[in-house]
Design a binder for these strands. Structure first.
Length: 276
DNA sequence: ACCCTCACCTGCACGC
DNA sequence: TGCGTGCAGGTGAGGG
């Protein structure tokens, strides 16, 4: 279920826990998890590789391996890594296993079977279908006011849908899109090219703030960072300003938060603070 | 090129 | 209690 901030936290945790370790063997238990390679290739490509570092691009986790390979992972809705002690049982929906040095076992579990993995040569990483069309990182210098303004100007779609488009903004999902629009006081159904320069700038700032804040929260909320049994999730019990608060009072004006459906997905907003 | 709908799975909260 | 329904934070394929 993670968006950029949670994926960032997962990447940091994994980097801390498994960077420098060798994968002695790897097993793919559900072939469709890595549809571009076979289970045999998965095992062969990963066996013996040292995990040099774990990073992130958009909502993708990137495991840089020695020998010029990168393991790409998308958690989608329910993907999750766990680092287990030798001998402990696999979680119910374990779809991949990485047997590491020192009897550590990294497992990937995924209740909804939406997760995705691929192994690619690092030299072509940025040209892969997964990463090639991804928008700039919203917390990088590339993500400027001008970039956001140009993006918005290029489409008549409702601004909320534009924010969910990974080719426009990398890493935003349904929650943080709603939170950013609320902070910027922009109505989710407003046509993207109808935003004034002022609102566009507010939205740019709100996106950056929302993500920075959420990364901090997610880091703080991690229970015990050194507990190998705990999953690598950020907090589940964060409270959002508008997300999932239908009917509850707006923190700014007290009006009831409303829910509407756009492209089959819930949008939450304050009808008084976020006018068309 | 754009934009929408649907499919991919399981589990959970809800109303009857 | 049990069963049906709708919903879930993501994305890509396929269609108009």
């Amino acid at each position: 279920m993670p968006e950029l901030p949670e994926v960032e936290t997962v990447a940091r945790s994994l980097d801390r826990l498994v960077a420098g370790k060798k994968i002695l063997a790897a097993a793919l238990h559900r072939e469709k998890l890595a549809p571009r390679i076979t289970a045999a290739e998965f095992a062969r490509l990963l066996a013996g590789r040292v995990i040099e570092r774990v990073g992130r691009r958009g909502k993708y986790l990137l495991f840089d391996l020695d020998g010029g390979l990168t393991l790409l992972v998308h958690l989608r809705m329910s993907g999750r890594f766990r680092l287990l002690e030798d001998g402990s049982e696999n979680p119910r929906f374990t779809h991949a296993e990485f047997f590491l040095e020192e009897d550590a076992r990294l497992v990937f579990e995924d209740q909804r079977h939406f997760g995705y993995m691929n192994v690619v040569p690092t030299t072509v990483l940025w040209e892969t279908r997964e990463l090639k069309l991804l928008a700039p990182e919203p917390l990088s210098g590339e993500f400027t006011r001008e970039y956001v303004r140009a993006c918005l100007a290029s489409s008549r779609r409702p601004v909320k849908l534009l924010l969910l488009d990974q080719r426009k903004v990398a890493g935003l999902g349904n929650i943080y899109a709603a939170e950013a629009l609320y902070r910027a006081r922009v109505h989710p159904q407003k046509p993207a090219n109808g935003l004034s320069a002022i609102k566009s700038n507010r939205l740019h700032a709100a996106i950056v703030e929302v993500l920075r804040f959420a990364i901090d929260q997610s880091e703080l909320a991690k229970l015990d960072p050194d507990d190998l049994e705990s999953g690598f999730y950020g907090s589940d019990d964060q409270s959002w300003l508008v997300y999932d608060r239908e009917g509850a009072p707006c923190h700014r004006c007290g009006n009831g938060i409303r829910r509407l459906v756009q492209s089959g997905r819930s949008s939450y907003f304050c009808p008084r603070c976020q006018r068309m």
